[in-house]
């Protein structure tokens, strides 16, 4: 079983530390298969090394985030190569 698989809402808190908007309602387009969906509808795999948001249609890694202490400084590493775009609604 993929017990570490969560739904996309599980990444809302972590993305909220980086972006000043509600990110689970942002729309993503997969750079692999082109499917569009809300971040909250994607698949999330999270463990001690990092968090991977995957396309629910093709499992392509959309967003990869690691948060760690490289060189003794807390830092986020964010890889967005798997998304063609992110459409983020302004806060109302």
């Amino acid at each position: 079983m993929d017990e570490q698989r969560l739904d996309g809402n599980a990444v809302g808190g972590l993305l909220g530390e980086i972006f000043p908007f509600e990110m689970t309602s942002a729309e993503t387009a997969c750079a692999g298969c082109g499917a569009t969906s809300g971040v909250g509808a994607a698949m999330v795999y999270a463990h001690g090394m990092g968090t991977i948001v995957r396309c629910a249609s093709c499992d392509n890694a959309l967003i990869r985030i690691a948060r760690h202490n490289g060189g003794g400084m807390g830092q986020y590493w964010l890889d967005l190569r798997g998304v063609a775009y992110l459409k983020i609604e302004e806060a109302t």
Partner: peptide, 22 residues
């Protein structure tokens, strides 16, 4: 996969090479 997300390129546990810059 992880080396491109800030993890160390070599990863020797005895030198505690966890992250880039360690």
């Amino acid at each position: 996969f992880w080396e491109s997300l800030g993890y160390h390129n070599e990863g020797d546990p005895w030198r505690e090479q966890r992250y880039r810059g360690d």
